[in-house]
Nucleic acid binder design. Structure first.
Ligand SMILES: [Zn+2]
Ligand SMILES: [Zn+2]
Ligand SMILES: [Zn+2]
Ligand SMILES: [Zn+2]
Lengths: 127, 127
DNA sequence: TACATAGTGTTATATTATAACAATTTAAAT
DNA sequence: ATTTAAATTGTTATAATATAACACTATGTA
């Protein structure tokens, strides 16, 4: 549990209190009052936060959410559900799913060191 | 097996004969001799080709590959392996994997209509 | 033919992300 | 305490990815 730098903390706090995935330039607009002025300052913080597993990038949306799953602190095995109407994103925490994927081997017997899975559908509210 | 429009065919032919995922602007550069001049012409063809399952987007790379898997013609259930060194991408075609994921239900019993899975690791050559 | 749908061409612009360089802070190592 | 390396910051500029808006053309079909 390393300590975050100033910019990392500012960016993390914002994402962490957001109820929806945040995009980089939306983050930028929201932290300008805290002294972060340039995209690169945001992207550097995001890179680090992803690297240490405090946040995840939702690749299909170019957006970021805080990790609330204590077991994936290095972002090596991530799964999300995404509502195609309201864009609500939830991190999936399923032991059987992660076990299945972590142990998955392809035709050539190759095992992978990392995966990212995104499920799409309609959330409860939107159904 | 619907017939492709002129631009869709040009873009598909290029991607289909490529041995690696292609990015939109690289596609653009390669089809300019065929009369496609603007990014939007490429993106429109890409959108349609993805929609009908002739190609897939590798979300983590913003790149596109042709589908060689006859069973996923609508791009609703895709899985790829990505080498983090040489960037080689292979579409995974595993009946047990697709069965597992297609039937996966989350905590709330929700089933999803679509998924995309990206595995990362080192390919044979790079190990 | 008349109509609807899909596709095209074009210009401009929006969005997402990185390069390059200089300075500063932090944490060890001597 | 001083040196050193690593990480972080600040800044400007620019690259890379993607869409908006509008006018027009082709295609299928009732
Ligand atoms: Zn997580
Ligand atoms: Zn929803
Ligand atoms: Zn496929
Ligand atoms: Zn490789």
């Amino acid at each position: 549990m390393q300590t975050l730098s100033k910019n990392q903390q500012i960016v993390f706090d914002l994402i962490n209190k957001s109820t929806e995935p945040m995009k980089a330039y939306s983050i930028l607009h929201n932290v300008q009052k805290k002294g972060i002025k340039a995209p690169l300052q945001v992207y550097r913080a995001l890179d680090k936060l992803v690297e240490i597993g405090k946040i995840h990038k939702i690749e299909s949306r170019n957006a970021f959410i805080a990790c609330h799953n204590s077991s994936c602190q290095v972002s090596k095995a991530t799964a999300f559900s995404i509502c195609e109407i309201c864009e609500k994103v939830t991190e999936i925490s399923s032991a059987s799913l992660s076990k299945y994927l972590t142990n998955f081997k392809d035709k050539d017997g190759m095992k992978y060191s990392k995966y990212n899975l995104e499920f799409f559908g309609l959330c409860k509210k939107c159904r």
